[in-house]
Each structure stands twice: as C-alpha cells, then as structure tokens.
C-alpha cells in the first residue's frame, strides 16, 4: 500500500458553519495503481485531491490520517508539508493552462523552481521527458504565452513529475481539452507510470468513460463519502451501488441513437453538506431506498477489492 487514507474528515469553514466536504473517507492505493476518482460537482473529489497536497485557507482537518509510504503526511501543517510536496506528492492542477509564470521563460522558471527545492536541473533528463510527451526542446526558451493550451498542459505534466513523486494527483486535467488531446494526455500519464516517474496516481475527474481507459481502480464519491470502489471493469460492468448504476445509465453510448428513450439523468440534487441529513446521503434520490437507509451504511467489502457503502447492494 503506498497511500492509506483513514477516516479523513475535512471541513470548510464558512460563516454559516462547517461544510463537511469530506466526511470520513477511507481508502487505500497500491504501488503503481491509478485510481480514478469520480463524482458530480461538490461531492468532495477536488477537496480530497487538495487535502493530499495543499489545503487552502478555509479547509480544516477535523479527523483522520493520511499515510504515504509509511510516513504520515502533516496535511494541515502547511510548512511541514512543504518537505513532501513535489518530492513525494505532486499535482497537475486543474488550471494547468495558467499555471506557468507568464513573464519567465520556461527554462528559467524550471531552474529556479528546482533550485528553490534544493534540486539541480538535469537538462538531458528534462528534454527526454519533454520528448516523451511530444514537446520539442525549444519550448524551454519560450514564454508560456507562446505555447498552445495543450503544450502548456504537457509542460506542466513534465514539470510536476520531475522529482519522481510517489503520488501524483491529476485534478481534472482533461476537462478543458478536446477529445484527441484528452487521449494524448491520458496516454502520457500512463507513460509516466510505466517509466517510473510516478508510482501511483489519483486521477480526479467527472468523466467516467475516460477514467475507465486509464484507471486500474475507480472510486465513486457521493456527498463527501465513498459510495463504491472497485476495479475499473467491475465498476463499469457490474456496479453494485445504485448511484454508480444511475451514473452509468446517464452516459450516452457511442453509436446508439436515443430516439425512443430519453437519456435519463438522476433526479434531484445532492444534499447540502452544511448540515447533511442522517443516514445514507443518497437516500432521497435513490430508487430502491428503504427503511434501513435511515442509518449510515458502512463501507463493506462485498468481493475482493470491491467496496460498497449501501445496505441494498
């Protein structure tokens, strides 16, 4: 197990009270595993991604631990966390297009960043990695404004993994890209794992179809909690949680015309996490909810590596 998250609770402080964005998440991530983290907006997937590398000022850890390669991460101590960032945990941010300083040439920015972390720039290695994602070496002598969006994205991917982190968090990296670039990014990420630049990866997205292609395991989150976690094929072909099933039903299939049947969404919306209702949080939207759902469903391992939090599963 390279990453072990136990009972992690992270709340946002607001004027109205605490928003329980992560309310007791537990999961593990093996060496070399790519975990696809899926869920709708506000389910806590980005909060989870941020908690593992850099909490923002409003976030507060209420409980739980994160252990990476046998060492506990001081996730709520910004200073102590610096030691782990970039070397152990790294991030490809959602905003990769604007993540580079506009007034520095890329070579200089990378050099300064590495030097500030006490690492020397291995130019040959950097150029090799850039070539691997299809970036020519000249890119180093350009300003970010002179690159296309896709090039910036790939440059950020290379920079983020330069110190061979153990865990890479890819936060919605494909959401702003067209389909063919998405494929290139996905392939590059797989290549990074194969070359050993990163050990394991959390791929945060709301694109279930794309996740299926690159992730080994998919974890579905709902309202700050784990709903279902299983190997990618199992999630797509034999989901057990009603939310996962509805999520898959809401996806269009290529080549199928929806003339006689409207594509179904999931009626209703997730509960407010300011004061979440007791019991199963999907209860109100769940077609098969029953009496027992008034109580919190525990996460149960129904089959090896198949975890589901549902009484009816």
């Amino acid at each position: 197990m390279s990453l072990q998250v136990s009972e992690l609770k992270v709340h946002y402080r607001t004027l109205k009270g605490d928003v329980r964005a992560l309310d007791g998440m537990s999961f593990g991530l093996g060496d070399g595993e790519i975990l696809g983290l899926v869920g709708e907006s506000g389910c806590g997937k980005s909060t989870l991604g941020k908690s593992l590398i850099r909490m923002d000022g409003r976030m507060r850890r209420v409980g739980g631990t994160v252990v990476l390669d046998g060492r506990e991460l001081p996730i709520d101590d910004d200073r102590a966390m610096n030691e782990f960032r970039f070397r152990e945990v790294s991030l490809i941010p959602q905003y990769a297009m604007s993540a580079l300083n506009p007034t520095r040439k890329i070579r200089r920015m990378v050099t300064e960043l590495l030097r500030s972390r006490g690492a020397a720039l291995d130019l040959a290695e950097l150029e090799r990695r850039m070539a691997q994602v299809g970036l020519p070496a000249e890119v180093l002598d350009r300003y970010p404004i002179e690159l296309s969006g896709g090039m910036k994205q790939r440059m950020v991917m290379v920079i983020s993994t330069l110190l061979d982190p153990s865990l890479l968090i890819a936060d919605e990296v494909t959401s702003a890209l067209d389909v063919s670039t998405q494929k290139a990014v996905a392939r590059a990420l797989l290549g990074f794992r194969e070359s050993g630049y990163v050990k394991s990866m959390i791929f945060v997205t709301h694109d279930l179809a794309l996740t299926h292609h690159i992730a080994d395991t998919i974890m579905v989150m709902y309202a700050g909690r784990l709903a279902e976690k299983a190997p990618a094929d199992v999630i797509v072909k034999a989901p057990r949680h009603p939310y996962t099933k509805l999520l898959l039903d809401a996806l269009p299939e290529v080549g199928v015309r929806y003339a006689d049947r409207r594509l179904e969404g999931i009626a209703g919306s997730p509960p407010s996490l300011l004061n979440p209702p007791a019991g199963c949080r999907f209860r109100d939207r769940c077609p098969i909810a029953g009496e027992e759902c008034a109580e919190d469903p525990p996460v149960a391992e129904l089959a090896p590596d198949h975890h589901v939090a549902c009484w009816k599963a």
């Binding site: 590398i53 960032r85 970039f86 991030l91 604007s98 993540a99 960043l113």
Partner: peptide, 17 residues
C-alpha cells in the same frame, strides 16, 4: 492568488520565490 502562485505553492516552492 493567481494560478501560477498556487501551482508553485503546491510544489512546495518557498514563499520567497
């Protein structure tokens, strides 16, 4: 508050840089 600053912080760059 801009994105490049957030990215550098996420990579643990010192606030001096």
């Amino acid at each position: 508050e801009s994105d490049y600053s957030n990215y550098l912080s996420a990579l643990g760059a010192p606030s001096r840089l």
